[in-house]
């Protein structure tokens, strides 16, 4: 589904990602872990199409298409969803209105009729139940005056509504209390299907108690320096990132 080869990214001449490789297949959940400044959020932004970064080398293909040929909104309509680390406020625009616009844009792109108001409301009710969102949240303006937890839950709710093929969750767990964390994890688990994939970017192993990844990658200094299964996350938690750094100093991880 997603194939990243030798990706090198910089901003203002400073290299952030250097020669990164990653393969994500349908049905898989990947966790990307790493210390601050290792390039995790940059990777998410580049996949989603934020153009403040310079891609110096490498390629990304998504569903067999060169991702760099696609505008950010096209990537979204083709099923890429980014759960933002810092969701932005859009005053005066209700979540319902925002999502209905987004869904109908996507449907238009796919050659489908726009969703009627009734269909949309029904879908919204279903998804709210699924991800355990309070019904009042959707009448409020997008992220305006939301607590940190509400913002993150709102991201998961949007993900449920937009039904992405590839979801990238950028530190969705940071700043959450344990209850909110469970809601987020629960949402991700329920949305998991054989034909979609999820990339979870996280700092801590904590989230992975609730979402079981197929693969765990350690990102350090703009490269994936170690990959493994969920045990790797536990090992990291107890031994710290320095341990991976030392262990893999000489190795090159494909």
């Amino acid at each position: 589904m997603l194939s990243i080869k030798n990706l090198t990214v910089s901003i203002h001449g400073k290299q952030i990602i250097g020669g990164l490789n990653l393969e994500v297949k349908e049905g898989e959940v990947h966790a990307i872990m790493g210390p601050n400044g290792s390039g995790k959020s940059t990777l998410a932004s580049v996949i989603a199409g934020r153009d403040m970064f310079d891609v110096d080398a490498g390629e990304i293909t998504y569903m067999d298409q060169n991702i760099f040929d696609m505008a950010p909104e096209t990537r979204a309509r083709e099923g890429i969803f980014l759960g933002f680390q810092y969701p932005v406020e859009i005053p005066g625009v209700s979540i319902a209105n925002f999502l209905r616009t987004a869904i109908n844009e996507k449907r238009k792109y796919l050659g489908l009729e726009p969703m009627t108001g009734a269909e949309f409301l029904k879908m919204m009710e279903e998804k709210k139940k699924m991800v355990e969102i309070h019904s009042k949240l959707t009448n409020r303006s997008v992220n305006e005056g939301f607590s940190g937890g509400e913002k993150k839950k709102n991201e998961i709710f949007q993900m449920a509504m937009l039904e992405p093929r590839l979801a990238i969750l950028d530190e969705t767990d940071s700043g959450l209390d344990i209850d909110a964390l469970k809601v987020v994890a629960n949402g991700v688990n329920k949305l998991r299907r054989p034909d979609n994939a999820t990339i979870i970017i996280t700092h801590y192993q904590r989230l992975l108690d609730y979402i079981v990844p197929d693969f765990v990658h350690v990102l350090y200094d703009g490269r994936i320096i170690k990959s493994g299964d969920k045990k790797l996350a536990l090992e990291l938690e107890s031994k710290g990132y320095d341990w991976v750094k030392k262990e893999t100093k000489a190795d090159t991880i494909p």
Binding site: A48, G49, R50, M52, A71, P72, E73, A76, R77, F81, L82, F84, Y86, P87, V88, E89, I90, F98, L99, T101, A102, E105, K106, Y109, Q158, L162
Partner: peptide
């Protein structure tokens, strides 16, 4: 730019 990108990422041009 953050607001615009947020919308773009949801498929809104």
């Amino acid at each position: 730019e953050d607001q615009l990108f947020y919308c773009l990422q949801r498929g809104i041009d």
